[in-house]
Amino acid sequence: MSKPFSFLVSACCSQTKARAGVFFTPHGSVETPRFMPVGTLANVKTLTPKQLCETEAQMVLANTYHLHLQPGETIVARAGGLHSFMGWQGPILTDSGGFQVFSLSEIRKITEDGVTFRSPHDGQIINFSPERSIQIQNTLGADVIMAFDECPPYSASREEVEAATSRTYRWLERCIAVHQRTDQALFGIVQGGVHLDLRSTAAQLLAKLELPGYAIGGVSVGEPPELIAKIVQATAPLLPPNKPRYLMGVGTYREMAQAIAAGVDLFDCVIPTRLARHGAALVQGDRWNLKNAQFREDFTPLDRSCPCYTCQNFSRAYLCHLVRAQEILAFTLLSIHNVTELIRFTQRIRAAILSDRFTTEFAHWLTPSLEEDKGR
């Protein structure tokens, strides 16, 4: 009987640590490197599963914390699991809820056992422990589930980060002990803040556990882009080369390209749909505000080279009109394009790695920038 999860590296860049691979799951394979759209509440905002398929998305995310609060994992299970509930038959990854819980800084208490917090929905006191997070994720039924971790903010002291990193490892051991399903891959998360020695120790400890995959967490929580790149470049090569590496919460051109050069395979971020809801389009790494008057009589597509439904059927002028009129269709059409844009970027990088032209074709995005990435 074959293993339900495996990772095959197809090609490696001769000048960087970038690699092109395939991550096999029970609900299909994911070609890496790959951007994964975020579907927090079991939906990628404003998009149907069919529209999502047309963006060439292969794997999507959902969130344990939010689904536990609404509608509850029991209802999802009664619907046949997360895939049936949301009508998406490709691979799904669920976050542990750790980041969301720890962002509730004013209404939660952290102990060795876990986190106690007051529900922002109804004020109910809820306990989230490593065991509870895994039990909820087992019930939801995603292909990849994440270990419950403590995600310290960028402003945390070294002592606080060190304590959180140690606790994250102890919690991971508890997650492993309670994890029940062989058709779900449990990924561990490397924490350590901006301290490279803590990151190194955490990565080496996690690597010894021989998990199906590994994530780098605790970045994009306030650090400047150049510091994120430094953390990833130091951490990713320490993780097992025969397992997928996932950089959590990152989705700009420059950040993804630099992380891929360090050996990262998977990415997620809310950027494409969030920008769409604010009337903005991502076009070849730039962010365009479609409310701007310059688009009112521009009858060309957002990007002539883009194969998405939006670019093939509508003009910048029409999108400008929808955004200015606050029509809901604007959010859908811009989300279709923005999600396609980031997936295509990782697809192009994959093709460049396979032909060993990564550093040549993506040199612009691999160089450090003193300015914040335009796609942010």
Results as ranks from 00 to 15, higher is better:
306 C>R: 13
297 E>G: 02
2 S>W: 04
323 V>G: 00
373 D>T: 15
148 F>I: 14
190 V>E: 03
294 Q>G: 02
374 K>H: 07
326 Q>I: 00
69 L>T: 14
32 T>S: 09
105 S>G: 12
5 F>E: 10
358 F>D: 00
233 Q>R: 13
294 Q>T: 14
26 P>F: 03
64 T>W: 10
110 I>R: 05
104 L>V: 09
64 T>K: 08
318 Y>P: 00
293 A>E: 00
182 T>M: 05
12 C>W: 00
14 S>I: 11
127 N>D: 09
302 L>E: 01
346 T>W: 02
325 A>N: 08
82 L>T: 05
183 D>F: 09
183 D>A: 08
170 R>P: 06
43 N>C: 15
68 H>G: 10
180 Q>Y: 01
36 M>W: 08
156 A>I: 15
145 I>F: 03
164 A>E: 03
323 V>T: 00
61 L>F: 15
314 F>Y: 15
234 A>S: 13
213 G>I: 05
14 S>R: 15
285 G>D: 11
87 G>K: 02
364 H>K: 07
53 C>E: 15
52 L>Q: 11
359 T>M: 05
364 H>R: 06
360 T>W: 07
78 R>V: 07
316 R>C: 01
368 P>G: 11
296 R>K: 14
263 G>I: 14
127 N>L: 08
166 S>C: 14
221 V>L: 14
180 Q>D: 14
247 L>N: 04
57 A>V: 11
1 M>E: 06
258 Q>A: 11
128 F>E: 06
165 T>E: 10
300 T>C: 03
253 Y>G: 15
292 N>K: 13
341 E>R: 00
98 G>Q: 06
262 A>P: 02
245 R>I: 10
107 I>S: 11
140 L>G: 03
340 T>R: 10
50 K>Y: 12
352 A>Q: 10
320 C>V: 00
326 Q>H: 09
259 A>G: 09
99 F>L: 11
321 H>V: 01
42 A>N: 13
51 Q>D: 14
175 C>S: 06
291 K>D: 00
182 T>S: 09
44 V>I: 09
181 R>F: 12
3 K>C: 01
192 G>F: 01
70 Q>R: 13
202 A>V: 07
366 L>M: 06
357 R>E: 13
366 L>F: 04
154 Y>A: 13
297 E>Q: 08
260 I>E: 06
19 R>D: 05
167 R>S: 08
74 T>S: 13
123 G>D: 13
115 V>H: 01
278 H>P: 09
42 A>P: 01
158 R>S: 07
193 G>S: 05
280 A>T: 14
87 G>F: 07
69 L>H: 05
138 N>C: 08
339 V>L: 10
26 P>L: 01
298 D>E: 07
273 T>W: 04
251 G>I: 12
113 D>N: 15
368 P>L: 07
329 L>K: 12
281 A>F: 02
47 L>Y: 00
69 L>F: 02
203 A>Y: 12
162 E>N: 10
322 L>V: 01
62 A>I: 11
311 C>L: 04
207 A>Y: 05
355 S>Q: 13
198 L>P: 08
23 F>G: 03
59 M>C: 11
60 V>M: 05
141 G>F: 08
98 G>W: 04
121 H>V: 09
55 T>R: 05
42 A>S: 12
119 S>L: 12
146 M>T: 06
80 G>N: 03
157 S>P: 04
